[in-house]
């Protein structure tokens, strides 16, 4: 495992990001921008699922409107996040908040799959519903809680990251 991390740490892109003073903050800015759009768009869908917001609009049209934004922003967040990770792979991989964030991300993914393929597979038949079935409302609440935690964990990485030297 450590060998792989050292390999990641030593790749030319990682070196460039580490050694260039302005690259890291710029990638970080892009990461924040993308992450806020991911959670902002997901939260609007979640709030409709829970039954707090936009009750007079069908969930199917809300998710159709917002999901393209979510996925595009997620792609940018994942790429910039990976770049930030490589620049300091050893430190991140030992950081509690980074690992926690990755686990929460995984859980959010599982929750989304459950909604996509089980709970919400008849989403179009809910078009005239104001309040959705309990399972859908629960799914929205779990998603929102996970994504808010992801933001908190992500911010804490910056306060707890400790330098780990790549000495093999």
């Amino acid at each position: 495992m450590n060998d792989i991390l050292i390999l990641i740490y030593g790749n030319p892109i990682a070196e460039t990001i580490r050694e260039n003073e302005i690259l890291f903050p710029w990638i970080e800015s892009l990461h924040v921008l993308a992450v806020t759009l991911v959670i902002g768009s997901i939260a609007l869908v979640d709030l409709r699922l829970i039954g707090i917001r936009a009750l007079n609009r069908p969930i199917s049209s809300i998710s159709k409107e917002l999901l393209p934004i979510t996925w595009m922003a997620f792609l940018v967040a994942a790429v910039t996040g990976a770049l930030l990770f490589t620049s300091n792979a050893l430190s991140y991989s030992q950081n509690f908040h980074f690992l926690g964030k990755m686990i929460l991300l995984g859980l959010a993914g599982v929750n989304m799959m459950c909604f996509q393929f089980i709970i919400g597979k008849n989403i179009d038949s809910w078009n005239h519903y104001q309040q959705l079935p309990t399972s859908a409302r629960l799914s929205g609440a779990i998603s929102l809680a996970l994504w808010v935690s992801i933001i908190f964990f992500g911010r804490w990485i910056g306060f707890t990251l400790e330098p780990v030297l790549a000495v093999s």
């Binding site: 992450v35 806020t36 939260a43 808010v148 911010r155 804490w156």
Partner: peptide, 15 residues
């Protein structure tokens, strides 16, 4: 963290 969450609200609305 709360600041970032509020930014998320603004940005998705603005976008």
């Amino acid at each position: 963290s709360i600041h970032i969450l509020a930014i998320a609200s603004v940005l998705v609305g603005v976008l």
